[in-house]
Design a protein around this nucleic acid. Sequence first.
DNA 1: GCCAACGTTGGC
DNA 2: GCCAACGTTGGC
Length: 142
Amino acid sequence: MAYWLMKSEPDVLSYDDVVAKGVPEEWHGVRNYAARNNMRAMQLGEKAFFYHSNIGREIVGIVEIVALAHPDSTAELNQKGEVVWECVDVRPVLKLPRPVTLDVIKATPELAEMALIKLSRLSVSPVRDTEWALLCRMAGLD
DNA sequence: GCCAACGTTGGC
DNA sequence: GCCAACGTTGGC
C-alpha cells in the first residue's frame, strides 16, 4: 500500500467541505502530468494526506482512494479526441487531532526529502512509509 | 502582491 | 531538438 499527499486550496475546497458534502469527491482539475501519473498509480483503499495550500499550509486530514483514475469530467479532450486528464475519487477518513504545518515539516530533518518540500508545485505526490508514520505521530494519531 | 521554481509552448 | 518567452503554483 502506497501513501500520498494531495493539495487543495481551502478557499476552493477544504477538508471540511469534503466532509460536509458526504459523498465521494472527484479530485478533478489537475492539469499536470506528474500529478496525473501519481493518481494513475493509486490503488483502492490507499490513503492520502489532505494538505491545505496557500491558506493554512498544513496537513489537516486523511482521505482514502475510493475510485481508481478515470477521465476528469471537467477536462477537455485533446485535439485527437483522447482523454488526457484523469482523476481519482476520495472520501474523508479522519481529521488530524493536530494539523502538521509546512513550517514544522520543513523544520523536521526526517521530512526534508518529501516531494512537498522538494517539488513544491506538485499537487499530488507520493509519501514514503516512514514519512507517513512520522507525520501521523506528529499529528497526534497513534 | 511579489517572485522563485518550474512546466509548457512555439519559433527557429 | 534547443531555448526564450510565457503562464501557473504556491510560499513568503
